[in-house]
Computed example of a mutant assay.
Amino acid sequence: MRIMGLDFGTVTVGVAVSDPLGLTAQGIETIRYVEHKKNVLFDRLGELIEQYAVQSIVVGLPKDLIGTETERAAASKSFAKSLRRKFHLPVDLWDERLTTMAAERILIAADVSRSKRKKVIDMEAAVLILQSYLDKKRMEKKRDE
């Protein structure tokens, strides 16, 4: 079962998908969109959902360091609700604390230039969101067995 991970931002959405077994997350792309033209965003997500046979979606939920939802969390919740309605798939919200900073560190360590980092940081954050979600689900499954 493939799961899609999304890092929802004000002008970009980072996209990652799991492998068919739900073990690893791979970055797919960063989608740029304009707030009043979200249909372009949803059209592209629909194409990716079909292409990768996605069966559920995980959207990053912004929280501060102590776990309180940030101002941006309401937008992520609204986006998740729109995804459920549009694609009729289960959508989970997942704590995305520090994923963008971690993504930046990974890209710097890989010696990715600043201009290239700007283009892929949201996709890398989506990978981290999805991978932490997959790891947690795998741990819960092992515990329950």
Results as ranks from 00 to 15, higher is better:
residue 13 V to H: 01
residue 13 V to S: 02
residue 15 V to F: 07
residue 15 V to K: 09
residue 16 A to F: 02
residue 16 A to Y: 03
residue 17 V to M: 05
residue 18 S to A: 11
residue 19 D to A: 08
residue 19 D to V: 09
residue 19 D to K: 03
residue 21 L to I: 06
residue 22 G to N: 08
residue 23 L to S: 08
residue 24 T to F: 15
residue 24 T to E: 06
residue 27 G to Y: 10
residue 30 T to M: 07
residue 31 I to V: 10
residue 31 I to R: 07
residue 32 R to A: 11
residue 33 Y to C: 03
residue 34 V to P: 00
residue 34 V to I: 14
residue 34 V to S: 07
residue 35 E to Q: 13
residue 36 H to Q: 13
residue 37 K to L: 12
residue 39 N to C: 08
residue 40 V to W: 09
residue 40 V to N: 09
residue 41 L to Y: 00
residue 42 F to R: 02
residue 43 D to T: 15
residue 44 R to S: 12
residue 45 L to S: 10
residue 45 L to I: 12
residue 47 E to C: 08
residue 47 E to F: 13
residue 47 E to D: 15
residue 48 L to W: 08
residue 48 L to Y: 06
residue 49 I to E: 02
residue 49 I to H: 03
residue 50 E to A: 13
residue 50 E to K: 08
residue 51 Q to H: 11
residue 52 Y to Q: 03
residue 53 A to C: 08
residue 53 A to T: 12
residue 53 A to Y: 07
residue 54 V to S: 09
residue 54 V to T: 13
residue 54 V to A: 13
residue 55 Q to T: 14
residue 56 S to E: 14
residue 56 S to F: 00
residue 56 S to Q: 11
residue 56 S to W: 00
residue 57 I to D: 06
residue 57 I to N: 10
residue 57 I to H: 07
residue 58 V to K: 02
residue 59 V to M: 10
residue 59 V to W: 11
residue 60 G to V: 07
residue 60 G to Q: 00
residue 60 G to I: 06
residue 60 G to Y: 01
residue 61 L to T: 03
residue 61 L to K: 02
residue 62 P to R: 10
residue 62 P to Y: 10
residue 62 P to I: 07
residue 66 I to F: 05
residue 67 G to S: 04
residue 67 G to I: 06
residue 67 G to H: 07
residue 68 T to Y: 09
residue 68 T to V: 05
residue 72 R to E: 14
residue 72 R to L: 15
residue 74 A to N: 12
residue 75 A to R: 05
residue 75 A to K: 05
residue 75 A to E: 08
residue 77 K to V: 03
residue 78 S to A: 14
residue 79 F to W: 09
residue 79 F to L: 02
residue 80 A to I: 03
residue 80 A to M: 02
residue 81 K to E: 15
residue 81 K to H: 13
residue 83 L to P: 00
residue 83 L to N: 04
residue 83 L to I: 03
residue 84 R to F: 07
residue 84 R to W: 10
